[in-house]
Design a protein around this nucleic acid. Structure first.
Lengths: 396, 396
DNA sequence: CAACTTAGTTAACAGTTTTTACTAATCAGC
DNA sequence: GCTGATTAGTAAAAACTGTTAACTAAGTTG
């Protein structure tokens, strides 16, 4: 049955091998500690195939052997884990508020990170600065002796699905920027897989790929920051992020939920972002771009108007979550972004709205788990790194 | 790169063969008249492989040879087409207004059809009636000498993604119905692939799979009928219809676009369906379930209140289209369902709203083509048949 | 009509998973 | 402690895939 890792057009034996290698890797990623025999059972491959693929992956630094299983009669199997000690991926977020970089291993652990809270200026200057920070990051002793699989960069705007080009980033004033090309002109950068993606997509991918616990069937990650975006991921072994025809999937901040409502900077009226978003709240509360929104809210928490504003924003977020659920029906909703720093003030009305406005269909189904990421400083950067790993696992 | 036809878990040589056969078939479906050499070029397979697969497909009744190409020097290639004369698929729509059946060939042509405009009662009685009609349909002389690939059934409600079970059909009063199991108890039905899917999904799949002309990258099909649903399809060679965790993808009729608005039958307020849907308009205009909505509108076309009502409904539909575009970003929107019989009265305000409320991101992109299906009597049934073909092409 | 070009087929080949048989390691029971 | 049962993992042969390279087929062009 169709799912997600298929060649552009048709497949040869090489593709088949790559598919199986990647499936085995993903099987171990999703349930660490499986033995070769377990993998054979789960994937349907034979013990012989699994054995030879595992050997190759171990030699390549992707898998490592662990302890022995001891379950009843028979020779115990040897546990297999992703090898967190031999490779790493670089991930970077070019955000409105600054640059954030991580290097993480195959298990998703952040080995080293950097962030610089300065708003990007031109694409060229930003590329230069990012390159310098990448060089600095790679000198971190935690990365010594490891090989780099590549670099993923996330940007605050839609990326063309056909080419790694940032189409429009209103909050940076950038348009049609080939950021990876600018970066490639810089010295001392690693080779391997280079990827560019939207911030919400990257974050969503990372949360799905490195999910802590039993992985959900699919997720929608709502990124509530200056603007509101959303990334969607599904696919057991080969997670897919739908991007749409023009890379606009998940631009839910500009879905209209209040026809004839307030004007939005996008040129329309009544967008969700006019009710819940960093820029709308800052504007309503007169908070300077440099100042902290959550601090301002905290300071004026006893003003009734402020309470009502945040309450309304939370409800709008809840409505957005419901609409998203009716349109994409993910098995889990994840909320992230700097707006989460408003904590219960924003989140409680959102959850309340979400639960109080479920319709019959939803009530019939088991309720959708909602996960909240309080600190998403490195979420997008780590997600970009995760995308690098997923791609490298296919190409190796 | 990930896309859509991957085995449950891992692939063996059988899968590889099936993949390539299916890819070749799809290549011909998307551009009829290609030669073996063209296919080899497009798919990346070698001439040898293409040759042997084409031979197998021809013998199996899937492909036929056509005229000779005559383009410049060299031996001319022989055009290949899907063979419309040897197989057919059955498709049925269990709708609120009755049963609709088609038999169509590999090219998507309807060879025979039936429809019975009687509202279904119980699942059991409906299965019995549908089985009788299927037997009757299969006796149509147009089907003589052809083999049946299977049966697809579409139903007016979400289908569980894990099993072919109708979860809820409010307009039929059905809940958790294993309709295919009921059907299987009936005599004289064909074997092959049996599928069950939501009406909007089936229709969307059919419009994509049998697209007349250059196939779009992806589509969203909005089914505007008693309720409002939506099906999404994308994937070049292996079209995928996302269903979501509980089969609720595309339930856009219950996205809220007017918080605090009118009560919806789903238990919520301000759903899109309260503004634009068969039931809302019928209720507002006091039209009996048996009577024709379009006729009623036609008759009262000069009442100002009626004009305003339809105008508002059209605008709501336009808003829904915009929101859908911002969430899923398909490369084409298709409008279908019985509400299209209201014609320009409904459609013009919808298109006007859609075009007048595009934001900067959309304006920057080339505009999304919108296709309107005036008569969608057999759209869902044919779509269900298309799904059967797609599945059979993989399994054969 | 010979040279050229492109389409399609054939047989040997390389690379994949599977099959089958085997070895390795642990536990249970005597 | 030994034997047998059971499960894990490996090795070599077998089966099957698409590829390669050489060939035949069938047109056009000079």
């Amino acid at each position: 049955m169709p799912n997600s890792f298929t060649p552009q057009v048709a497949g040869d034996l090489n593709y088949l091998k790559s598919l199986n290698r990647s499936t085995i890797l993903s099987t171990v990623r999703r349930s660490p500690g499986l033995s070769r025999a377990d993998i054979a059972l789960q994937t349907g491959l034979t013990k012989a195939t699994v054995g030879s693929v595992v050997q190759a992956l171990s030699e390549g630094g992707w898998l490592r052997e662990g302890e022995l299983h001891a379950r009843g009669g028979g020779r115990p199997g040897r546990a297999l884990y992703l090898d967190g000690d031999r490779h790493y991926m670089l991930g970077a977020e070019v955000g409105v508020k600054g640059l954030r970089l991580v290097a993480c291993n195959l298990v998703g652990e952040i080995l080293a990170s950097l962030h610089q809270e300065v708003s990007p200026t031109t694409p060229e200057a930003t590329a230069t600065r990012l390159a310098q920070l990448l060089v600095q990051l790679r000198q971190n002793p935690a990365l010594a002796g490891r090989s780099c699989l590549g670099l993923g960069v996330s940007v605050p705007g839609p990326v063309s699905p056909s080419a790694p080009i940032l189409r429009l980033a209103p909050n940076l004033g950038w348009e049609d920027v080939d950021f990876l090309a600018l970066l490639r002109e810089q010295p001392d950068l690693p080779g391997g897989v280079w990827l560019l993606d939207n911030e919400a997509n990257a974050a969503a991918f990372g949360e799905f790929y490195f999910f802590d616990g039993v992985p959900p069937e699919s997720i929608a990650y709502i990124s509530a920051d200056i603007g509101i975006g959303c990334g969607v991921v599904s696919g057991e072994h080969f997670p897919v992020v739908p991007r749409g025809y023009q890379g606009l999937v998940g631009e839910i901040g500009h879905t209209v939920i209040q026809p004839g409502g307030a004007f939005c900077h996008c040129g329309n009226r009544g967008c969700a972002e006019t009710l819940v978003s960093g820029w709308a709240l800052r504007e309503a509360l007169n908070v300077e771009p440099e100042a902290s929104l959550s601090a301002a809210v905290q300071a004026r928490a006893d003003e009734e108007a402020v309470q009502a504003l945040i309450q309304r924003a939370g409800e709008a977020l809840g409505l957005l979550m419901l609409n998203l659920h009716h349109t994409l029906n993910p098995s889990m909703l994840i909320l992230g972004g700097s707006l989460m720093r408003l904590e219960a003030r924003l989140i409680e009305p959102a959850l309340a709205y979400f639960h109080d406005h479920q319709n019959d269909l939803l009530r019939k189904s088991q309720s959708v788990p909602i996960k909240i990421i309080e600190d998403s400083t490195f979420t997008a950067a780590r997600g970009a790194a995760a995308q690098v790993m997923a791609r490298a696992a296919i190409e190796v």
